[in-house]
């Protein structure tokens, strides 16, 4: 269940796309963490994810779980940003046949889903394929 406090406390990364950057090795991680998974350093600073990235891999979900059934079918991709950070996000407003590995995407802010019982709406990042 996604209650209001649970959504509220994730605001920095979901609404402002904050990530952590390791001051020692330079690794960028999304969502932010307290410890760098590459070098173990606890000296991390906050950075904002770039607005564009590229698709590393993707799929079209046709059998959705509870909470997502009305959206089905929808595309989900792993996006890599120029600073090396990676995130999983849906690809929206794009024909499925335009989605390809290597294509550039732009991050947009969208509704993720509505929690059934309370009706709380959860927002977060999704991506649109940029046509050149």
């Amino acid at each position: 269940m996604f209650t209001i406090p649970r959504i509220w406390r994730e605001k920095p990364q979901r609404y402002r796309l904050e990530a952590s950057k390791c001051s020692k090795c330079g690794y960028v991680m999304y969502p932010p963490r307290k410890v760098c998974p590459k070098c173990g350093s606890e000296e991390l600073t906050r950075v904002t994810l770039p607005e564009t990235g590229k698709i590393l891999t993707y799929t079209i979900i046709r059998t959705a779980p509870l909470g997502f059934m009305e959206l089905s079918p929808y595309a989900v991709a792993i996006v890599e940003f120029p600073n090396g950070a990676r995130a999983m996000m849906q690809i929206v407003d794009t024909d499925f046949d335009k989605i390809e590995i290597g294509k550039e995407v732009k991050i947009v802010f969208r509704k993720l889903f509505t929690e059934g019982e309370s009706g709380v709406i959860m927002y977060g990042p999704k991506a649109i394929v940029v046509e050149d």
Binding site: L56, T57, T59, I61, T63, P65, V76, M88, L112, G124
Partner: peptide, 24 residues
């Protein structure tokens, strides 16, 4: 849950991401 589940990914979906990349 917070960073994969909330984007609507399923287990077939996760392995599909691997399959797609493996094929690529």
């Amino acid at each position: 849950r917070e960073y994969e589940g909330y984007q609507g990914i399923t287990f077939p979906g996760l392995f599909a991401l691997v399959a797609k990349r493996h094929m690529f």
